[in-house]
Design a protein around this nucleic acid. Structure first.
Lengths: 252, 252
DNA sequence: TCGATTTTGTTCTCACGTTCACAAGCTCCT
DNA sequence: AGGAGCTTGTGAACGTGAGAACAAAATCGA
């Protein structure tokens, strides 16, 4: 056990391996909260302060941070800048990750311009589309390039993250191409379930699913007062048909 | 207990109250899978088939569906159309929900055109922005209206869902206005933690957080081979500074 | 130097979600 | 009619995550 370099005598025992997924998902939120505090000129914050800023429970926040090591000071709190660096390093955004966006429709267009994407830590190196009519178009300070150039770009710029903003139809094929070109992390906006080999990470953002989840709870709210009993088979008790195409535009 | 209307003799005991949140989040995925199967002309599917299409474990799928009732047939599977209707009804997308989008920047623009939003079950009734330069602009078959008209629109169209695509700065204020106008479900794309009173549901979609989660795992992958030991305080053992502005563009 | 006060880091308990495994139930074939 | 073969629905075991509570450590003042 490396004798605890300059940090603490208690030695963080290298909690490095195995941060729970739920915690990983919250680290970026803490990072943002710390950045906001830092911008407000606040140098030190307690777990309570941070938790409020991040919208979580303070016990949960402390436990989350404890997976990274002991970066706080008992009786005092956390040094904002120091903690910010530690979280940024843990997440990996102290280095720059090269990103390609595939599918320059409405959404791809928006993401290409989206400043939130320009978050330090990520660098969009190419906008790709298979449609010849789009290739060559300027968006901000970038030019849309042909999807055929994918492999070349991935190799040249060491791209590890791909963003898919195509329609559902071509998404799996685009995904396969990305993976075989060497991309190992994918953020998918297309409304399909993509399958990838082991070792490739995939995350999905789906507008209509989010809306549907809201709708479920919304229905519960209105139903609560209106029909507290017998919310079973409101109309339609036998026949099935006539439902149009609920469920999201699979296919173009 | 209402004597089980016309459906089954086993009586679903009205599992209606209390579907686990994790299950609710998957129902839209099942709905989409069923729609795809239906479009392929498949009339019956086993839990195994469905699970594959939805990208989940078949046991999990069966348990999820069991919360809605007993809609399958042992030895046979599920009737695709029938199950599709039941899930759509449970989620609440057999009716139409009125939606307003606030903040017609890049993202709002894209969402206004995004066909996935046109998923049956939701109807965009207004695009709002506070910027006079944007008001009046045509997007598809809609016209951007002034944010000041919010209350009027919400009341007239019984809007229950609001989508926030403003920058982080004005998001909380927009959120408050939406809530006080009567909106009870909010989908937030702005990179801030919004606070809402009890009774209002809020969901967040955050591009940079998704990217950061991918980056974390990506770093793990590269690091696995490169530095299997001593991944502790690589550079920087004392000083903190120099980290630019990691953490997302809070403020415009 | 010592005690009071503050706040972290951690332990313990409980709730939730996932997966396994199997009985119950349906269809089809003989 | 009866048995073989599937497939659902669910009970039970397991793992992960959340929250309460508290001991350990730091600061500050007397």
């Amino acid at each position: 056990m490396t004798p605890a370099r300059s940090r603490r005598p208690g030695a963080p025992t290298r909690t490095d391996r195995g941060i729970p997924e739920a915690t990983v998902a919250r680290l970026p939120v803490y990072l943002r909260a710390l950045t906001a505090l830092s911008d407000s000129g606040i140098a030190t914050a307690s777990s309570e302060d941070l938790a409020t800023a991040a919208g979580v429970n303070s016990a949960k926040l402390r436990k989350d941070l404890s997976y990274l090591g002991s970066y706080g000071t008992r009786g005092v709190g956390y040094d904002v800048e120091y903690l910010r660096y530690q979280i940024a390093r843990e997440i990996g955004v102290t280095q720059d990750w090269a990103v390609v966006i595939v599918g320059i429709g409405n959404l791809g267009h928006a993401l290409a311009n989206y400043s939130g994407f320009g978050t330090r830590g990520f660098r969009i190196v190419a906008l790709l589309d298979a449609d010849p009519k789009l290739v060559g178009e300027r968006i901000g300070d970038m030019v849309v390039r042909d999807f055929a150039e994918l492999e070349e770009i991935v190799a040249a710029d060491r791209v590890s993250i791909g963003v898919i903003t195509t329609p559902a139809g071509p998404a799996q094929e685009v995904c396969d191409r990305l993976v075989s070109a060497g991309v190992t992390s994918i953020l998918n906006f297309a409304p399909v379930v993509l399958s990838v080999p082991a070792g490739v990470d995939i995350r999905k953002v789906d507008l209509s699913i989010e809306l549907q989840i809201l709708a479920y709870h919304e229905q519960r709210k209105s139903g609560e007062a209106a029909l507290p009993e017998v919310p079973e088979l409101p109309a339609m008790n036998g026949v099935v048909t006539d439902l149009p195409s609920v469920g999201g535009g699979v296919g173009a």
